[in-house]
Design a protein around this nucleic acid. Structure first.
Length: 264
DNA sequence: TCGCTTGTTGATGG
DNA sequence: GCCATCAACAAGCG
């Protein structure tokens, strides 16, 4: 699930269920703790009240009036409230019992990602690493400046969190398909117009997919709706989609809409 | 049993 | 040095 729009949804869920609430108790699977032992996490959180959380790319930073926890959702993580699901699940890795009697849980089937504890804002950078500007907040001028400086393939650039943060495999394919750009296009080969379209598509796709209750896998004219199906075809022109590994990930594109290089 | 999977990092090789 | 690929992490599914 988790790319930028999904984590944005988790942020909203955290606001709804946890902000303003104090932590009464903590249950945690120690195997998802990445920088502090179980006792330290429990001791740091209990009694503290959650404040407005912050999303940076695919990271969720959950501030309290004391320390913060940083959540990364890997490929299979999400948040679950006890209001929606009274019982804990075997894949729940963290349960925050709040002072309203409800629980907010971090669920992650595979344990990629995890939980980090920080005591103040100065520690965050050392954990999230060198993140580029958030893909939903980056300005057109900053984005285009970065694209002009970038080498290598287009899809690799979009998925590089230090280039822009928040785009993963599914949305990289969606952005490139809607922008009609081949995933292997060398970034330096893009024209001014192509850079402009790339930015516009990235922003509109992420904004739409971040809207409340959006199911991007159900958007009628999106690649996301048809990717993964056998013998799948382009939603725009009906051409059979290509599938190959690009930048290390399974990639879908339309050979008609996204030619390898510009006609010259 | 093998291959595959929406993420990230570090090693490797051209 | 740059860039692309691959293994590893982990767990489930077909």
């Amino acid at each position: 699930v988790p790319e930028l729009p999904d984590v944005e949804g988790f942020r909203r869920s955290f606001v709804e269920h946890a902000v303003g609430r104090a932590v009464r108790s903590v249950w945690v699977d120690p195997t998802i703790l990445r920088n502090a032992p179980e006792d330290a996490v429990r001791a740091a959180l209990i009694g503290h009240r959650f404040e407005e959380p912050e999303r940076r790319g695919k990271w969720l930073i959950c501030w309290t009036d004391g320390p913060a926890i940083l959540l990364h959702f890997g490929m299979t993580g999400h948040l679950v409230s006890s209001r929606d699901e009274p019982e804990r699940h075997r894949w729940d890795r963290l349960a925050l019992v709040l002072d309203d009697g409800e629980e907010l849980r971090y669920r992650n089937m595979r344990k990629l990602g995890g939980l980090w504890l920080v005591h103040d804002a100065s520690e965050v950078g050392g954990i999230v690493g060198r993140l580029g500007p958030d893909a939903l907040r980056v300005t057109r001028s900053d984005f285009e400046r970065r694209v002009r400086r970038r080498r290598g393939g287009l899809k690799a650039a979009l998925m590089d969190q230090s280039f822009v943060s928040g785009v993963g495999n599914i949305f990289a394919d969606e952005i490139l398909w809607q922008a009609r750009l081949h995933p292997r296009r060398p970034v330096p080969s893009l024209s001014d117009e192509e850079r402009r379209v790339l930015f516009a598509r990235m922003r509109s796709i992420l904004r739409r997919a971040s809207a409340v209750d959006d199911d991007h896998a159900a958007q009628p004219r999106w690649l996301a709706r048809v990717r993964g199906r056998p013998d799948t075809t382009c939603p725009r022109c009906g051409t059979p989609l290509r599938r190959a590994t690009v930048a290390g990930r399974t990639t879908y594109w339309c050979p008609a809409c996204q030619p390898e290089a510009e006609e010259s």
